[in-house]
Protein backbone atom coordinates (compact mmCIF):
# COMPACT_ATOMS: atom_id res chain seq x y z
CA UNK A 1 0.00 0.00 0.00
CA UNK A 2 2.58 2.52 1.15
CA UNK A 3 4.66 1.88 -1.97
CA UNK A 4 2.07 3.48 -4.27
CA UNK A 5 1.52 6.57 -2.20
CA UNK A 6 3.00 9.69 -3.86
CA UNK A 7 5.85 10.99 -1.71
CA UNK A 8 6.08 14.67 -0.75
CA UNK A 9 9.02 16.32 1.02
CA UNK A 10 8.30 19.31 3.29
CA UNK A 11 11.27 21.61 3.91
CA UNK A 12 10.14 24.14 6.53
CA UNK A 13 11.67 25.38 9.78
CA UNK A 14 8.39 26.19 11.60
CA UNK A 15 7.26 22.97 13.24
CA UNK A 16 3.59 24.08 13.48
CA UNK A 17 3.34 24.77 9.78
CA UNK A 18 5.24 21.57 9.02
CA UNK A 19 2.82 19.61 11.14
CA UNK A 20 -0.23 21.17 9.49
CA UNK A 21 1.08 20.60 5.97
CA UNK A 22 1.93 17.02 6.82
CA UNK A 23 -1.49 16.36 8.32
CA UNK A 24 -3.21 17.94 5.32
CA UNK A 25 -1.15 15.88 2.86
CA UNK A 26 -1.59 12.66 4.78
CA UNK A 27 -5.34 13.18 4.97
CA UNK A 28 -5.31 13.21 1.17
CA UNK A 29 -3.28 10.00 0.95
CA UNK A 30 0.21 11.37 0.32
CA UNK A 31 3.25 10.21 2.17
CA UNK A 32 5.05 13.19 3.76
CA UNK A 33 8.66 13.54 4.86
CA UNK A 34 9.88 16.50 6.88
CA UNK A 35 13.10 18.47 6.96
CA UNK A 36 13.72 21.57 9.08
CA UNK A 37 16.88 22.83 7.43
CA UNK A 38 18.14 23.25 3.91
CA UNK A 39 20.93 20.77 4.40
CA UNK A 40 18.58 18.17 5.85
CA UNK A 41 16.18 18.84 2.99
CA UNK A 42 18.79 18.05 0.34
CA UNK A 43 19.72 14.80 2.12
CA UNK A 44 16.06 13.80 2.38
CA UNK A 45 15.47 14.70 -1.27
CA UNK A 46 18.38 12.46 -2.27
CA UNK A 47 17.42 9.49 -0.11
CA UNK A 48 13.60 9.57 -0.14
CA UNK A 49 13.26 10.38 -3.83
CA UNK A 50 10.07 12.48 -3.36
CA UNK A 51 7.77 13.25 -6.29
CA UNK A 52 7.07 16.78 -5.06
CA UNK A 53 8.82 19.26 -2.75
CA UNK A 54 7.17 21.93 -0.58
CA UNK A 55 9.89 24.46 0.19
CA UNK A 56 9.88 27.37 2.61
CA UNK A 57 12.05 30.20 1.25
CA UNK A 58 13.01 31.55 4.66
CA UNK A 59 15.19 28.77 6.01
CA UNK A 60 17.68 29.44 8.83
CA UNK A 61 20.69 27.87 7.12
CA UNK A 62 20.47 29.16 3.58
CA UNK A 63 18.62 30.48 0.60
CA UNK A 64 15.76 28.39 -0.81
CA UNK A 65 16.84 29.40 -4.32
CA UNK A 66 20.11 27.49 -3.85
CA UNK A 67 18.12 24.44 -2.79
CA UNK A 68 16.10 24.62 -6.02
CA UNK A 69 19.23 24.99 -8.16
CA UNK A 70 20.84 21.94 -6.56
CA UNK A 71 17.65 19.94 -6.87
CA UNK A 72 17.22 20.93 -10.54
CA UNK A 73 20.71 19.63 -11.22
CA UNK A 74 19.39 16.10 -11.08
CA UNK A 75 15.60 16.09 -11.09
CA UNK A 76 12.62 17.92 -12.61
CA UNK A 77 10.10 17.06 -9.89
CA UNK A 78 7.61 19.84 -9.10
CA UNK A 79 8.59 22.33 -6.41
CA UNK A 80 6.01 24.48 -4.59
CA UNK A 81 7.46 27.43 -2.73
CA UNK A 82 5.99 28.74 0.52
CA UNK A 83 6.60 32.44 1.12
CA UNK A 84 5.30 35.53 2.82
CA UNK A 85 3.25 38.23 1.12
CA UNK A 86 5.23 41.12 -0.21
CA UNK A 87 8.33 39.11 -1.03
CA UNK A 88 7.76 39.16 -4.81
CA UNK A 89 11.42 39.29 -5.75
CA UNK A 90 12.14 36.16 -3.67
CA UNK A 91 9.33 34.34 -5.42
CA UNK A 92 10.52 35.45 -8.86
CA UNK A 93 14.02 34.28 -7.96
CA UNK A 94 12.72 30.86 -6.92
CA UNK A 95 10.50 30.52 -9.99
CA UNK A 96 13.32 31.54 -12.34
CA UNK A 97 15.53 28.97 -10.63
CA UNK A 98 12.99 26.30 -11.51
CA UNK A 99 10.19 26.29 -8.91
CA UNK A 100 6.78 25.53 -10.37
CA UNK A 101 4.31 27.31 -8.11
CA UNK A 102 4.09 29.27 -4.91
CA UNK A 103 1.78 29.59 -1.93
CA UNK A 104 1.49 32.74 0.14
CA UNK A 105 1.29 32.33 3.89
CA UNK A 106 -1.15 32.01 5.46
CA UNK A 107 -2.78 29.44 3.24
CA UNK A 108 -5.58 27.01 3.99
CA UNK A 109 -5.48 23.25 3.62
CA UNK A 110 -7.86 23.40 0.67
CA UNK A 111 -5.64 25.77 -1.25
CA UNK A 112 -2.57 23.68 -0.47
CA UNK A 113 -4.10 20.43 -1.64
CA UNK A 114 -5.46 22.00 -4.81
CA UNK A 115 -1.98 23.20 -5.79
CA UNK A 116 -0.41 19.84 -5.00
CA UNK A 117 -3.04 18.03 -7.09
CA UNK A 118 -2.50 20.45 -9.96
CA UNK A 119 1.24 19.75 -10.00
CA UNK A 120 0.76 16.00 -10.09
CA UNK A 121 -1.85 16.41 -12.80
CA UNK A 122 0.47 18.59 -14.85
CA UNK A 123 3.21 16.02 -14.71
CA UNK A 124 0.90 13.32 -15.95
CA UNK A 125 -0.40 15.62 -18.73
CA UNK A 126 3.02 16.79 -19.90
CA UNK A 127 3.97 13.19 -20.55
CA UNK A 128 0.96 12.51 -22.78
CA UNK A 129 2.46 14.21 -25.89
CA UNK A 130 -1.00 15.20 -27.11
CA UNK A 131 -0.97 17.53 -30.13
CA UNK A 132 -4.57 18.69 -29.73
CA UNK A 133 -5.29 20.97 -26.77
CA UNK A 134 -8.62 22.53 -25.92
CA UNK A 135 -9.81 24.84 -23.17
CA UNK A 136 -12.94 26.97 -22.94
CA UNK A 137 -14.08 27.52 -26.51
CA UNK A 138 -10.55 27.37 -27.88
CA UNK A 139 -8.94 24.45 -29.69
CA UNK A 140 -5.27 24.36 -30.60
CA UNK A 141 -3.80 21.95 -33.14
CA UNK A 142 -0.12 22.08 -32.28
CA UNK A 143 0.88 19.88 -35.21
CA UNK A 144 -0.82 22.06 -37.82
CA UNK A 145 -0.28 25.37 -36.00
CA UNK A 146 -3.98 26.16 -36.07
CA UNK A 147 -6.08 27.87 -33.43
CA UNK A 148 -9.89 27.83 -33.49
CA UNK A 149 -12.45 29.52 -31.30
CA UNK A 150 -16.03 28.21 -31.38
CA UNK A 151 -15.05 26.34 -34.51
CA UNK A 152 -13.94 29.54 -36.29
CA UNK A 153 -10.23 29.95 -37.18
CA UNK A 154 -8.59 32.51 -34.89
CA UNK A 155 -5.87 34.71 -36.32
CA UNK A 156 -2.94 35.09 -33.94
CA UNK A 157 0.25 36.98 -34.62
CA UNK A 158 3.41 34.84 -34.46
CA UNK A 159 4.22 36.27 -31.05
CA UNK A 160 0.75 35.55 -29.69
CA UNK A 161 0.94 32.00 -31.03
CA UNK A 162 4.28 31.45 -29.39
CA UNK A 163 3.04 32.88 -26.10
CA UNK A 164 -0.04 30.71 -26.19
CA UNK A 165 1.75 27.47 -27.00
CA UNK A 166 4.40 28.14 -24.37
CA UNK A 167 1.71 28.69 -21.71
CA UNK A 168 -0.44 25.79 -22.82
CA UNK A 169 2.51 23.43 -22.59
CA UNK A 170 2.82 24.14 -18.88
CA UNK A 171 -0.60 24.45 -17.31
CA UNK A 172 -0.86 25.25 -13.57
CA UNK A 173 2.70 26.42 -13.56
CA UNK A 174 3.63 30.00 -12.68
CA UNK A 175 5.72 31.46 -15.50
CA UNK A 176 7.61 34.66 -14.82
CA UNK A 177 7.80 37.59 -17.23
CA UNK A 178 11.47 36.91 -17.61
CA UNK A 179 10.91 33.29 -18.67
CA UNK A 180 8.39 34.40 -21.29
CA UNK A 181 10.68 37.11 -22.61
CA UNK A 182 13.59 34.71 -22.97
CA UNK A 183 11.42 32.09 -24.65
CA UNK A 184 9.56 34.33 -27.09
CA UNK A 185 11.83 37.35 -27.72
CA UNK A 186 15.20 35.95 -26.80
CA UNK A 187 17.63 36.82 -24.02
CA UNK A 188 18.43 40.30 -25.37
CA UNK A 189 15.07 41.73 -24.31
CA UNK A 190 15.13 41.01 -20.59
CA UNK A 191 14.46 44.66 -19.74
CA UNK A 192 11.42 45.03 -22.00
CA UNK A 193 8.86 43.58 -19.61
CA UNK A 194 6.10 45.59 -21.23
CA UNK A 195 6.42 43.54 -24.44
CA UNK A 196 4.92 40.54 -22.65
CA UNK A 197 2.13 42.58 -21.12
CA UNK A 198 1.09 44.26 -24.34
CA UNK A 199 0.93 41.02 -26.33
CA UNK A 200 -0.60 39.08 -23.50
CA UNK A 201 -3.40 41.66 -23.30
CA UNK A 202 -4.00 41.22 -27.05
CA UNK A 203 -3.95 37.45 -26.72
CA UNK A 204 -6.47 37.60 -23.89
CA UNK A 205 -8.83 39.68 -25.99
CA UNK A 206 -8.77 36.89 -28.57
CA UNK A 207 -9.16 33.84 -26.32
CA UNK A 208 -10.93 35.01 -23.15
CA UNK A 209 -14.65 35.71 -22.92
CA UNK A 210 -14.10 38.64 -20.51
CA UNK A 211 -10.48 39.83 -20.73
CA UNK A 212 -10.79 41.86 -17.52
CA UNK A 213 -11.85 38.73 -15.63
CA UNK A 214 -9.75 36.06 -17.38
CA UNK A 215 -10.44 32.38 -16.76
CA UNK A 216 -7.45 30.75 -18.44
CA UNK A 217 -4.50 33.13 -18.66
CA UNK A 218 -4.32 34.39 -15.08
CA UNK A 219 -2.06 37.21 -13.96
CA UNK A 220 0.14 36.70 -10.93
CA UNK A 221 0.63 40.31 -9.84
CA UNK A 222 4.19 41.46 -10.08
CA UNK A 223 5.40 37.95 -10.98
CA UNK A 224 4.03 36.60 -14.23
CA UNK A 225 1.23 34.39 -15.54
CA UNK A 226 -0.38 31.06 -14.85
CA UNK A 227 -2.27 29.12 -17.49
CA UNK A 228 -5.26 27.15 -16.28
CA UNK A 229 -7.05 24.68 -18.49
Amino acid sequence: MSENKPRVLIVEDESDIRRFVRMALESEGYEAYEADTLKRGLIEAGTRRPELVMLDLGLPDGDGVDFIRELRAWTGIPVIVLSARGAESDKIGALDAGADDYLVKPFGAGELLARVRAQFRRHAYADSGESLVSFGDVRIDLARRLVERNGQPLHLTPIEYRLLTFLVAQPDRVITHRQLLTKVWGPSHLEDLHYVRVHMANLRKKIERDPSMPKHVLTESGIGYRFVL
Binding site: D16, M23, A109
Partner: peptide
Protein backbone atom coordinates in the same frame (compact mmCIF):
# COMPACT_ATOMS: atom_id res chain seq x y z
CA UNK B 1 8.19 41.75 13.13
CA UNK B 2 6.36 40.70 10.03
CA UNK B 3 7.83 37.21 10.16
CA UNK B 4 7.30 36.75 13.88
CA UNK B 5 3.70 37.92 13.80
CA UNK B 6 2.66 36.08 10.69
CA UNK B 7 4.16 32.67 11.26
CA UNK B 8 1.91 31.78 14.25
CA UNK B 9 -1.09 33.13 12.34
CA UNK B 10 -0.23 30.99 9.35
CA UNK B 11 0.05 27.95 11.64
CA UNK B 12 -3.27 28.84 13.25
CA UNK B 13 -5.09 29.03 9.91
CA UNK B 14 -3.53 25.81 8.71
CA UNK B 15 -4.12 23.93 11.95
CA UNK B 16 -7.75 25.02 12.03
CA UNK B 17 -8.09 23.57 8.55
CA UNK B 18 -6.43 20.31 9.56
CA UNK B 19 -8.72 20.05 12.57
CA UNK B 20 -11.62 19.91 10.14
CA UNK B 21 -10.08 16.92 8.43
CA UNK B 22 -9.48 14.86 11.55
Amino acid sequence: ISHDLRTPLASLVGLADTLQMT
